[in-house]
Amino acid sequence: MGIKLDYYDKKILFELDKNSRIRISELAKKIKKSKQFVNYRIKKLEETGIILGYNTVIDYSKLGYTSIRVYLKFHNITPQEQQEVENDLINDGEVWWLVTLEGMWDVGYAVAVRNILDFHSYWDRIMKKYRKFVSRSSVVVYTNIKQYPKAYLIGEENTGPGTIVGASTNIVKVDKADLSILKLLSENARTPLIEMAATLKASPQSIRSRIKKLEEKGIIQGYRAKIDVSLLGYRYYKAYIDLRDTRRFGTLEEFCLRHPNILNTNRTIGGKDFEIELQASSFDEFERIMNSIRERFSGDIDEYEFVVARKEMKMKYLPFKT
Rank of each mutant, 00 (worst) to 15 (best):
L27F: 08
F37G: 05
K32W: 02
L27W: 07
R21V: 07
F37I: 05
S34F: 05
L27A: 07
L13P: 00
L13A: 02
K33H: 10
L13T: 02
I12P: 02
R41N: 11
S20P: 09
Y40S: 15
L27K: 04
I31M: 03
I42R: 04
R21K: 07
V38A: 06
L16S: 06
F37L: 07
N19C: 10
L13D: 00
A28V: 04
S34R: 14
E26P: 05
K29L: 10
R23H: 09
I24R: 00
S20T: 13
D17I: 03
D17Q: 02
E26Y: 11
F14G: 00
D17V: 04
E15P: 12
L13V: 01
K18H: 06
I24K: 00
I12A: 01
R41V: 14
K10A: 14
K35H: 09
R23M: 14
I42Y: 09
F14W: 03
L27G: 11
V38L: 12
I12Y: 01
Y40E: 12
K29A: 12
L13G: 01
K35C: 13
Y7N: 15
V38K: 07
I22T: 05
I31D: 04
K30P: 11
I42C: 06
K32D: 03
K29C: 04
I42D: 04
I31T: 10
F14L: 10
I42W: 06
K11G: 00
F37Q: 10
Q36I: 08
Q36M: 15
S25R: 11
Y7H: 15
E26W: 13
K35I: 08
K30S: 12
K10Q: 11
Y7K: 13
R21W: 00
Y7M: 13
K29P: 10
Y8T: 14
K32T: 02
N19F: 03
I42Q: 06
A28T: 08
S20D: 05
E15K: 05
R41A: 13
N19S: 14
N39C: 11
I42P: 07
Q36F: 15
I42A: 03
N19W: 01
Y7P: 11
I12L: 02
I24V: 06
I31Q: 05
K33F: 06
K35E: 12
K30Y: 07
